[in-house]
Amino acid sequence: MLTAVATALGLSNVVPFGQGGQKIVASADFGDQPAIVKIVLVPAGPNGRVVVERAHREVDLLAAVDSPTVVKVLTDAVEIDDPMQVVCWVEERLDGDDLDRHFDRQWAEDEAWLLAEDLASALAACHREEVVHRDLSPRNIRRLDSGRYVLMDPGLARHLARTALTGFGQPGSYGWMSPEHVPGGRAVPSSDVFSAGVLLYCALTSTLPVPYGHDDSDYYRRLAQEDAPSVTQLRSDISAELADLVDTCLKRQPARRYLDGEELQAAVRRFRRVCA
């Protein structure tokens, strides 16, 4: 399989280093450029069509978004074998590690502002293309060696103008969901803003504002009915501006949050000028 993938994508030195579910991730050389290759295994039966559509959607969304805070895709999605067994593509290789490796401590305020800036920039770029990420969680954010952040893996994203291709429910990661992820809800751009608030809250406090206790119904009830606590309950030392930003992201009602990434980005810039 790896030989077929390398041939189809023009790769050399393909070395797998991770697998999750149906996706294999490998390092490779793409010409003279180090790269990452994503290999999605296609199951037999009707679920195969959904997997293929999802893979093409992920690549199409990455290709549509042009931002230094969103990972770049370097090829189209390529289907291999008949009947199809694999869909694969190439992305830029990022240094650093995933954000979840950095939540074992409470961050300083300057660190949290950098995360806020880059999350807002990434979401603004996605939302301008009418794309809702829907799974903004630590495993989908890369912390680069420079200390900046890049959004990855929009495989569960939803294009608001193409509902027929993206109607797979409201997926997400427990602990990082928005109230709109509750069954029966519909994710919108401000849903990503809520999840950005969860990331910032966790960075500052090392805890989740709405923890997941392995009881789905209880978690969904609290998301839908209870207001998230103010970040100042655990971090009274941070500036009023940063606390206001995080608390506004975590408003239970979507209309009371920043409505999309561009509004969040404007608020970050405004507050940063005040704090400078």
Rank of each mutant, 00 (worst) to 15 (best):
P46K: 07
D95E: 01
V87S: 09
D110F: 10
E58H: 07
V50H: 12
D60A: 15
R101G: 12
A112H: 02
L74Y: 06
V71G: 04
D66N: 13
E58G: 03
V65C: 04
G45D: 08
S67K: 06
V90R: 07
I80W: 07
V59Y: 03
D60Y: 12
K38Y: 12
V86T: 14
K72G: 02
R105F: 07
L115P: 01
V42W: 08
L94S: 04
K72W: 00
E109L: 00
D76G: 12
V90D: 09
A124L: 05
A64H: 08
D82S: 15
D95V: 06
A64S: 14
A108F: 12
R57S: 11
D104L: 09
L123K: 01
R57F: 06
L99T: 06
D82G: 11
L41D: 12
T69L: 06
V52Q: 15
D76A: 14
A44R: 13
D60M: 14
E111M: 05
A116R: 04
Q85N: 10
D97L: 10
D81N: 14
H56L: 10
W107K: 01
D97S: 15
V70D: 01
G48Y: 04
V90S: 06
V73Q: 03
A44E: 15
D100W: 14
R101W: 11
L119Q: 02
E79G: 01
E91R: 09
T69C: 15
Q106W: 03
E111V: 00
I39T: 02
R49L: 13
W107E: 02
V40C: 08
E111C: 02
V86K: 10
W113M: 00
M84L: 15
L94K: 09
D76Y: 10
D60L: 13
P46L: 05
V71F: 11
H56D: 06
V90P: 03
L62G: 04
D100P: 03
D118R: 01
H56M: 08
V42G: 03
D98E: 15
S121G: 14
K38T: 11
T69M: 11
P43M: 07
W113V: 00
T69I: 00
A120S: 11
V40G: 00
V52A: 13
W113L: 00
A64R: 12
A120D: 03
A64M: 10
V71C: 11
N47E: 14
K72R: 14
H102Q: 02
G96R: 09
G45W: 05
A63P: 00
D76S: 14
V70R: 03
G48P: 04
E92W: 08
L114T: 14
V73C: 08
G48M: 05
P68I: 07
V78H: 05
V78T: 10
P83E: 09
V52P: 10
N47V: 11
Q106Y: 01
L62K: 07
Q85C: 05
L74R: 13
P68D: 10
L99H: 05
E91L: 12
A64P: 08
